[in-house]
Design a protein around this nucleic acid. Structure first.
Lengths: 214, 214
DNA sequence: CAGTGTGAAGTTGTTCACAGCA
DNA sequence: TGCTGTGAACAACTTCACACTG
C-alpha cells in the first residue's frame, strides 16, 4: 500500500522502513503479552536503540494514528502492521532444494504465521524425493511443471547448492513465478518483471566481522 | 581495515558495500571455475543489475587496483575480498538454541569456510543436550559459564525461541561476549560496547510481499 | 576507445526543530 | 508538559560526468 502526501501524489515506502516493521511487530506482541496497552514512539525507539522520530515516520507509513501524550494503542499497532505488511494474507511458495536450510525453512513455523505457505518442495536427490516434511511433499524437480499448475504459487524459494541457483531460477521464471527468494550467495539473472530478493548470511557475517575487527 | 582518503583522514566502509562484497566474491569464484582471468566492473555490474561505478567504488574500498582496458584479475579479487572481509581468519562462536534454525547453521558448511567456527551449542531441552551435531557438542545452558572459559569465543549466535533471546543475550554479555548475532525478530538490549547484528527472514519477507502487492 | 578512478551532483534516508494537541 | 506529526536540515549512499591510462 502506498501513502499519499499532501499534494496527492504517491510516495513509496522506504525499504529500510519495511525491513524494520517486522521487528517492531515482534516487540508489540511481547508488550501485549505483558499487558501493555499503550506505547510511545520513544519507548519503541529505546528498545531498538534508534531515534524516536524515525519510529514515528516508520509507523506513519502504515497509516496508524497515535494519541498525543498517550502513544499508540498496542492492539491497533499489531493489527495495522500485520495488515500493512500483508502478513495476514496467504501467499503460496515453492521450495527448490531441500538441504539443511530448506528443511529448516519448512520446519520454521514463523513463515506460515506470517503468511508464507510452502506448498511443495523440489529436489533431485533420490534419498529426499517423495518423502514428506511437516506434511509438505518433496517432489522430483522434473515434476515441477505439472505440479505447479495444480497448486500454484507466486514465490519461489531457492535453497539449492549455489551452482544450481540460476538453472532453478530459469525454470521457475519460465513457468511464470513472480518473485524469487534467493538464499544462495549467487547472483541470479531474471527478466525485469520478476522480483528477486537475496538473503545471504554472508552479508551479515561480513558486517559482524568488520565491526569486530575495526 | 579502513581506507585513507587523499587528505590522510580515515573514512569508513559503507555498510551496503560490506553487504555486497560477499555476493561479488561468490561471483568471482564462479568465474574462476569457468577459467575467466580478468573481469571488468561493467561485467560484474551487469551480473548484479547495478551501476558499474558502484562496483568500482565498492572494490576500491578493498584496496584492489584494476588495469585499465583489462579489468580486475579474478584470482587477486578473490584473495583481496576474502582478506578484506576477514573470511580467512578463524573466529569462534557459541550457538544458543539448537532448534531447526540452530541445527541448520551447524550443518551449514559455508560459515566454517568463511571463518566462523561454531565451537559449542547450548540448549535447555533434555532431548538435545549432550548430543553432538557434526562433532559439535550441545551442552546444557547452565554449563555455559564454565565451558566458555575453556574454548572462548567472541561471537554468540542466538537461535532460541523469541521469548528467550534477551535472557540468553544477558548471559552471554555477562560472560564477556563481544558480538551477538541475533536470529530472532526480538530486539535485544546490550551495553553500547557489544555489537548486535540482527538477521530476520521477516524483514526480507516484508520486502518481497510489499513488492509483490504494489 | 574501453576500461579504471574520482570529485560533484543527485537521491534517498535520518535527524533536527518546532507546531499542535490534550 | 509529554507526546504526535511534519517540514527543513543534514548525512549517507548512488549515479553522473569526466579526467586519465595503456
Amino acid at each position: 500500500m502506498k501513502n499519499r502526501n499532501n499534494h496527492g501524489s504517491s510516495i513509496q515506502v522506504p525499504i529500510p522502513t519495511l525491513r524494520r516493521l517486522p521487528g517492531y511487530l515482534s516487540f508489540f506482541k511481547a508488550l501485549k503479552i505483558n499487558g501493555v496497552v499503550y506505547v510511545s514512539s520513544s519507548q519503541i525507539a529505546s528498545a531498538f536503540n534508534m531515534d524516536s522520530t524515525l519510529v514515528t515516520k516508520d509507523l506513519s507509513h502504515t497509516g496508524i494514528k497515535g494519541r498525543t501524550k498517550v502513544g499508540y494503542n498496542v492492539d491497533q499497532l499489531i493489527d495495522t502492521v500485520i495488515n500493512f505488511l500483508d502478513f495476514n494474507s496467504r501467499e503460496n511458495a515453492f521450495l527448490f532444494g531441500v538441504g539443511n536450510l530448506g528443511r529448516a525453512l519448512i520446519n520454521y513455523e514463523g513463515l506460515r504465521h506470517y503468511g508464507l505457505e510452502i506448498v511443495a518442495g523440489f529436489d533431485i536427490d533420490p534419498g529426499i524425493v517423495n518423502t514428506s516434511i511437516k506434511g509438505i511433499k518433496i517432489h522430483p524437480l522434473e515434476e515441477f511443471r505439472d505440479l505447479s499448475v495444480k497448486v500454484p504459487a507466486r514465490i519461489g524459494i531457492i535453497t539449492t547448492p549455489d551452482s544450481n541457483a540460476q538453472e532453478v531460477a530459469d525454470l521457475a521464471v519460465a513457468w511464470g513465478i513472480k518473485a524469487i527468494w534467493n538464499f544462495t550467495p549467487q547472483s541470479i539473472k531474471v527478466p525485469a518483471n520478476v522480483i528477486v530478493e537475496n538473503t545471504s548470511v554472508y552479508s551479515d557475517l561480513a558486517v559482524i566481522l568488520h565491526r569486530l575487527n575495526n
